[in-house]
């Protein structure tokens, strides 16, 4: 694309550097901003700069946070006895969206996968083990992806917590809600049979 203005070109390139945005969309966004009041653009860029400069990582759970400790960790109404371990922020948000969980979280920052250069020490595992030493913590819920690497990570963490008197559970794996049995793959269906649930325990 050829622009008659160097200023436009720079702005387009900036937008186009974002994921999911091509040159055409970037140009449309730039045109839009150009046709608005200058204050709109100021607010817009200030919001980004502010966010980038002031965003923190919660020192307890590694969630994103405005303060030293995030809103979830400082919410006294939430249960202090359970910690739900997730891979990343997106997974935390997904679980929050369900509205089914009112405990604490811990973001690992990935799963153990030496092939991709991620070892145990690259993740927030030591911090998790420290947190679990707190008397108040009774249960750790492992909400990691059901992959081999996810399993490795769960095994590893469970080993670190041996003898600490904390219950460790994993999220259920099996047939998806509203799914039909005949379309479930063998591995999933097999697991669902092995880890079946007594009737009446499922409240849906």
């Amino acid at each position: 694309m050829n622009f008659s203005s160097k200023l436009i070109e720079e702005a387009v390139n900036a937008f186009a550097s974002l994921p999911g945005i091509g040159k055409k969309t970037a140009f449309r966004l730039v045109l839009h901003l150009m046709n608005q009041d200058v204050e709109r653009s100021e607010d817009f860029s200030n919001a980004i700069i502010n966010m980038r400069k002031n965003i923190k990582t919660c020192r307890v759970c590694f969630n994103i946070s405005d303060e030293e400790v995030c809103a979830i960790c400082s919410d006294k109404a939430r249960q202090q006895s359970t910690i739900c371990v997730v891979e990343n922020l997106r997974d935390l948000m997904a679980i929050e969206q369900t509205g089914q969980y009112r405990g604490q979280y811990h973001i690992l920052g990935g799963v153990i996968s030496p092939i991709e250069g991620i070892g145990a020490s690259d993740l927030n595992i030591v911090e998790l083990v420290e947190r679990a030493k707190d008397e108040e913590v009774k249960e750790i819920i492992m909400a990691l992806s059901p992959t081999i690497e996810g399993d490795t990570t769960i095994y590893y963490i469970a080993k670190q917590m041996e003898g600490m008197g904390v219950a460790i559970s994993t999220i259920a794996r099996g047939v998806s809600f509203g799914g039909e049995l005949e379309y479930a793959d063998e591995l999933t269906l097999g697991r669902s049979i092995i880890s079946r649930v007594p009737y009446g325990q499922v409240n849906d």
Binding site: G119, A120, T152, Y156, K159
Partner: peptide, 12 residues
């Protein structure tokens, strides 16, 4: 050497 990680793989 992270022996705990090797323990994990051995077990898996």
């Amino acid at each position: 050497v992270n022996h705990a990680l090797l323990d994990t793989y051995d077990q898996q």
